[in-house]
Simulated scan of single mutants.
Amino acid sequence: MFAIGIALNLGYVVAEGVAGFLYQSVALLADAGHNLSDVLGLAVAWGGAALARTAPSKRFTYGLKGSTILAALANALLLLVAIGAIALEAVQRFGSAPAVPGLTVSAVAALGIVVNAITAWLFARGRKGDVNVRGAYLHMLADALVSAGVVAAGVAIWLTGAAWIDPLVSLVIAVVIFWQTWGLLRETVEMSLAAVPRGIDYDRVKDALAALPGVEAIHDLHIWPMSTTEPSLTAHLHIPAGHPGDVFLEDVQAMLHERFGIGHTTVQIETGTACTLADERTV
């Protein structure tokens, strides 16, 4: 799936980039840059997924699951650099925009709609059960819409002869990429700082643990992403009546996985009151 998507998009990037240089269309070059970022994103996501399967070691006790977070952060930073280059070129073109063959631009961009739509279809089946796959699906779908915008720009240039439409569309594409990138950057920075993953409500998790039989207090509750798809949790549960046994722990793990998607859980049962981590300000 990743290999096919990368091959399709890489082939189109080359064709679109060559066409952009030949016909001096900054809109095509901007879209090619966007699609190249998709190729890099798919490649990094593929590589991150492969590294995440690395077995734990004495040095990396969680394996290399966190590599998916680093890969996503690197992608966001590279995209910001690409956005700056696209915007700079577009602004410079406004002063002396060269003549652009509108119908040719539209034809090349129309091919992009087909490529991105096929790639989105490849990820459509697995998008409901995997956040990474769903992200790739939505990204490819958005790219098809961006290519549609370039098609419309080409038609508008052909009808009006207004060369300034080309750099204008490239700026719009840069804004679209920035909008996608900003959300990715924020989320990956949060993940790298071990923030509670988006989609998990800390208070709801705490209330669910507090509602367990025998639990009188909870402290040292931490929820963080071990990778871009695997949330982890640790918590201390105060149960004065005594340790409830292994079945209780298994039930806690099953509940957290079913209700919140947290698959890696470590729970410490405490029957006394003396715990140095009971203060919420203590980590």
Rank of each mutant, 00 (worst) to 15 (best):
T266P: 03
G112M: 09
W224S: 10
L209A: 09
C275N: 01
G135C: 08
G149E: 05
A7W: 02
L209T: 03
T271M: 05
R259E: 14
V196D: 02
I200N: 06
G11A: 11
S170L: 09
R186K: 15
A87I: 12
F60Y: 15
V189C: 08
A76G: 11
R127K: 14
N9S: 12
N116I: 11
E16C: 12
K206E: 15
L80T: 08
P98D: 06
S57W: 09
V267F: 03
V175G: 10
W158D: 13
R259W: 08
M255R: 14
R259K: 14
D220N: 11
A274K: 07
Y202H: 14
I113C: 14
K128P: 00
A27L: 10
V146T: 11
L29T: 14
G5Y: 01
I6E: 02
A30S: 15
I223T: 05
G199D: 03
L138F: 11
D203R: 09
T181C: 08
T271W: 02
W182L: 06
S227H: 00
S37L: 12
P167G: 05
T234A: 13
T160K: 04
A85Q: 13
L141Q: 09
E216Y: 04
V196N: 04
L70F: 14
D279F: 00
H264N: 13
S192A: 15
L10N: 04
G135V: 03
